[in-house]
Design a protein around this nucleic acid. Structure first.
Lengths: 171, 171
DNA sequence: CTCTGGATTGCGAAATCCGCAGGCTCAGGC
DNA sequence: GCCTGAGCCTGCGGATTTCGCAATCCAGAG
């Protein structure tokens, strides 16, 4: 019962996307479903179906597939300050040797919330979340710098978080 | 709706010791509830209640309060690469004059997912999410650098996202 | 044309969500 | 002591949602 124009356009996007990253294809309907769940992760399937033009069962099946494929996850996110983590920092890391193995080592540390390999004057950027200054100092100087291959680090302690959204996939 | 509540809540508060904790303190039970919802944002209230030792209705009331207070939000999060945003970058910004007004200007840009004021060799760090290289180039060189007060920028283009968790409040 | 595999739909049963009334505890005022 | 109100929890019935499954649709291959 729904728009065939959307379906044909999604075929084009599927081809171009798949050639880039080989990941699972997302058509316009799945994107709309994700958008709904980015507004409210507990929105009922029937309400989502009404919004995107699908039956409740179809939405449920697609959501389950998106979760199984790891395309999205539905989770609670919190403001770190209100749950007792008073010090955050972005840490730029320079590596000699294999960058990926260093990234894996940092990924294994629970204080590292966010690890990304970058091009530029840093090889890695890492966001660390700590309870206080001592904890932060310990993580940066004793844990991160102790990883084999880490040549140097530069820290940017957070003073104020101005914006943090989860609207990936929309716009 | 108001999905940026978490970040915007602490926006206009200063260095009062009390306001640093932002909202209300969380007891162990609320923390346990958050932990449950960080594993699965759609977990039924009854199952959460069984895990934390509360009735279904009590869990429901607490969750609603945590959402209303902006302590947490339940949302779908995705890997930007799999939903069509192929270029991301962290941008360090140096500012002359009022840092906060520059931060507000960047916050208003939809491509800026994440804006934080920092101490260190950058005054601001901004995460930018774009569809392609042209888009990224345009945002950095034409939009960000055009903001009054921006002295210089340095970009770190993302090569590979290694870790992205939402486990704040656990550990 | 037929067949096949994937996606969607409809529907009944089970589970969950929701609002509300009532009970319990703890401070604070009289 | 006694009362009162706020805050939190529990129990419960009805409305809503989720779940599993069989049937249907549809495009593409043979």
């Amino acid at each position: 019962m729904h728009s065939e124009a959307v379906a044909s356009r999604s075929a084009d996007q599927r081809d171009s996307r798949e050639s880039r990253n080989g990941g699972p294809q997302l058509d316009a309907v799945s994107l709309a479903i994700i958008e709904q769940l980015q507004e409210d992760g507990r929105r009922p399937y029937a309400a989502i179906g009404k919004a995107v033009g699908l039956s409740e069962a179809a939405v449920r099946q697609r959501v389950q597939k998106l979760l199984d494929q790891g395309v999205m996850q539905i989770v609670a996110v919190t403001d770190p300050l209100t749950v007792g983590f008073r010090r955050q920092a972005m840490v730029g890391v320079n590596v000699e040797g294999d960058v990926e193995s260093v990234a894996d080592a940092l990924t294994a540390m629970s204080e590292c919330e966010y690890v990304v390999m970058t091009a530029g004057s840093f090889d890695l950027m890492v966001e660390v979340v700590c309870e206080d200054d001592d904890h932060l100092l310990d993580v940066i100087n004793k844990r991160i710098r102790a990883v084999p291959g880490v040549r140097s680090t530069e820290s940017f302690v957070y003073l104020k978080l101005k914006k943090q959204t989860y609207m990936w996939g929309t716009r």
